[in-house]
């Protein structure tokens, strides 16, 4: 008897979850098909009114916009490089944390924890000042360095949680066979750890792709400005009168890489997000 009730409840719940997650996304897609005249004159409603649709005009215009294309280039270069470097460094640190006993392990973990909670904005001033002095302001490296530093904690946690699950007897066996600790790490553990590393990489990429604070503060031109910052500067300073449908099209384009990653790797991402967060 309660079984039927439970099933109905679950069905309703699933529907609500899907609506919650996808409705705003559907909305921004729908908005991106409204024509710009209709938006300027005001066209309330979820779907484009008849005659107020724009087809793919907004997308064509967005993809011909140099500022936006350069922003895509900047975002891809900066996010990918930061991801690769951060995960490479985090792999080393996470191996040490998960596997080796050493003085200062607590210190590394605490530092990572504090940095993950750090109010990013409070660094903007000093970094702005420092980067201008050393010439990193408005460059790819000027963004990559903070991205690496701020994704390291996430990557280190995720990876050390994964590394704890690895059958370490195999490393022991390699060492018994005469491998040095470094060889054991490189030849035995790296292939086993690859899935965890990959997950950490996706999460790191999300962070870098999403960053806004550094993006607007440490860049000033199209030379290095990433997508989120470019979106917010898309049309001058008036936040109340933007070409909504054009922006929506740009937003959809910026969201596509995320959707693709999620579609292919959802299982890994969930495992990574929850790894080490609950065992307490």
């Amino acid at each position: 008897m309660s079984n039927v009730k439970e099933r109905v409840g679950t069905g309703v719940g699933v529907t609500l979850i899907l609506l919650w997650c996808l409705l705003p996304v559907a909305w921004i897609v729908s908005l991106s098909f409204k024509s710009q005249e209709a938006v300027t004159n005001g066209s309330p409603g979820f779907f484009p009114a008849s005659g107020a649709g724009a087809g793919f005009d907004n997308y064509k215009q967005v993809l011909q916009d140099d500022a936006f294309l350069l922003a895509i280039r900047n975002s891809i270069v900066v996010s990918l490089s930061a991801t690769i470097l951060s995960v490479a460094l985090a792999t080393l640190a996470a191996y040490a944390i998960a596997r080796l006993e050493f003085r200062g392990k607590k210190f590394v973990l605490t530092t990572a924890l504090v940095i993950a909670m750090f109010p990013v904005v409070s660094l903007v001033g000093p970094l702005f000042d420092m980067w201008r002095t050393v010439g990193l302001y408005d460059t790819w490296w000027g963004l990559m360095i903070p991205y690496i530093s701020f994704t390291l904690p996430l990557a280190i946690w995720t990876l050390s949680a994964f590394f704890r699950e690895i059958p370490w007897e195999m490393e022991q066996a390699a060492q018994v066979d005469g491998a040095t600790p470094w060889q054991a790490f490189r030849k035995v553990i790296v292939p086993l750890a690859a899935p965890g590393v990959f997950t950490a990489a996706i999460l790191t990429f999300f962070f870098a792709w999403n960053d806004f604070v550094f993006g607007i503060s440490l860049t000033s031109t199209e030379r290095a400005r990433p997508i989120p910052a470019a979106l917010s500067f898309f049309v001058g300073a008036d936040p109340f009168n933007r070409p909504a449908s054009l922006l929506a099209a740009a937003a959809v384009v910026a969201t596509i890489p995320i959707v693709v990653l999620v579609l292919f790797f959802q299982r890994k991402i969930v495992a990574g997000l929850t790894a080490g967060a609950v065992k307490g």
């Binding site: 996808l22 806004f212 959707v259 959802q266």
Partner: peptide, 10 residues
């Protein structure tokens, strides 16, 4: 995961 991945600005 889609809301999680969507850029906050978007």
């Amino acid at each position: 995961l889609i809301p999680y991945g969507v850029i906050t600005v978007v």
